[in-house]
Computed example of a mutant assay.
Amino acid sequence: MDNEVRRSFETLAIHAGQQADPVTGAVVPPIYQVSTYKQDGIGGLRGGYEYSRSANPTRTALETCLAELEGGRRGLAFASGLAAEDALLRAVCRPGDHVIIPDDAYGGTYRLFAKVAEPWGLTFDPVPLNDLDAVRAAVRPDTRVIWCETPTNPLLNVADIAALAGIAAEAGALLAVDNTFASPYLQRPLELGADVVVHSTTKYIGGHSDVIGGALVARDAALGERLAFHQNAMGAVAGPFDAWLTLRGVKTLAVRMDRHCANAEKVVEMLSGHGAVREVLYPGLPGHPGHEVAVKQMSRFGGMVSFRMRTPEAAVRVCEATKLFTLGESLGGVESLIEHPHRMTHASAAGSPLEVPDDLVRLSVGIEDASDLLEDLERALS
């Protein structure tokens, strides 16, 4: 991009990696639905493209944009968030290495570590990342990665990225930050010292519940090259149409996140005063244990809200009683979703140290009219 247009997040989201097509003048990057490319002689590649597992122009546009938005040197788009996580682990770890993960990590991440990475030879310890002394105590000579999720899914705990970056650097380890809940619009982990950012682009970045995807963004070029090698060698890349849909979603990320945050704040205010609700979990609440850190490293507090009912049965009833909040997994789309993590997204963590409370309800607050959402929740809670 020319320097004169690099003025704000909103401008980058619309223009980074997305110059007008030089042949037709199309202002939106085309969908290069192609597997192979004509070469101008042996080794003579046009623009570096030979086979779409290795690189595809539509995917390149998305990867460039994501790198710009996160402030990194290299962006890589994958078929899913878990595919991105797996590629990262294979690129930076070897059998016998050790990883520290949050003690309230996303259930799919825990499953990847416990059922895939551990049999491969990786060891890991779940640690409360908001307890820096506990993190330091968990570091071992063979620790290669501190895996951070902030805010966490679904308990919305907050970790101090800059402090964890310092601990990782002292240990000679990498700090990987799952930035899915915040998105680069609300939080920029690389600027706080993280080495690599992880995204499920299915969520806020895509934003419309119509595409599955994942991404890695590396702070330095050398790590970016290692990740790119594994992306190509393992092959779980984003297809061109998926990349195009995700890139379309990126363009409105800023305006959507503003509305998600505004609606979530109103939902939190209502839930906090409701007699049927035992506890509201939201980093924007002054009483939240991670509030001060969230204020320091986030511009706003996001569209995810969790709350605890007084019994597990009450939590299930609320999840089944809403009309506008659709009962469903995933998050970050324009529509509001409600779920019971214990029996849905985090069922894979049942019986483990990462098991979530069975009275917990998780909301992905969409961009509908806030008054309609409040009325729906009030009716379900009554």
Rank of each mutant, 00 (worst) to 15 (best):
32 Y>P: 00
31 I>D: 07
33 Q>M: 14
55 A>M: 08
4 E>T: 10
47 G>C: 11
8 S>V: 09
18 Q>P: 01
64 T>Y: 03
21 D>F: 03
36 T>M: 09
22 P>Y: 08
30 P>H: 14
13 A>Q: 01
21 D>G: 05
46 R>M: 12
58 T>M: 11
67 A>K: 02
7 R>M: 03
71 G>E: 01
47 G>D: 09
56 N>R: 08
9 F>L: 02
28 V>Q: 14
15 H>M: 09
21 D>P: 10
43 G>D: 10
60 T>W: 00
67 A>Q: 02
21 D>R: 02
61 A>W: 06
70 E>A: 03
38 K>H: 14
41 G>P: 11
66 L>A: 06
60 T>G: 05
28 V>R: 14
15 H>R: 12
26 A>C: 02
57 P>W: 11
53 R>H: 08
45 L>A: 12
10 E>R: 10
50 E>F: 07
46 R>Y: 05
27 V>E: 12
4 E>R: 10
12 L>A: 09
67 A>I: 02
5 V>L: 05
59 R>C: 10
35 S>F: 04
20 A>D: 14
32 Y>V: 15
10 E>Y: 01
44 G>E: 09
52 S>T: 13
57 P>K: 11
16 A>R: 00
24 T>K: 03
58 T>G: 08
23 V>H: 06
6 R>A: 08
41 G>L: 10
9 F>R: 01
4 E>V: 06
60 T>N: 07
62 L>G: 07
23 V>F: 12
58 T>H: 04
27 V>M: 11
37 Y>N: 02
14 I>M: 03
7 R>V: 14
34 V>Q: 15
30 P>T: 10
7 R>K: 08
7 R>S: 13
48 G>M: 11
29 P>E: 12
23 V>C: 00
30 P>L: 15
53 R>G: 01
4 E>F: 09
20 A>P: 03
38 K>E: 15
19 Q>I: 01
56 N>D: 13
31 I>H: 06
28 V>F: 14
58 T>L: 08
69 L>K: 07
5 V>R: 11
25 G>H: 04
18 Q>M: 13
13 A>V: 04
42 I>H: 06
19 Q>R: 12
53 R>Q: 12
45 L>Y: 11
48 G>Y: 07
43 G>M: 09
14 I>W: 02
22 P>N: 08
37 Y>P: 07
44 G>R: 13
61 A>D: 12
27 V>N: 02
37 Y>C: 03
26 A>V: 03
44 G>K: 12
8 S>D: 06
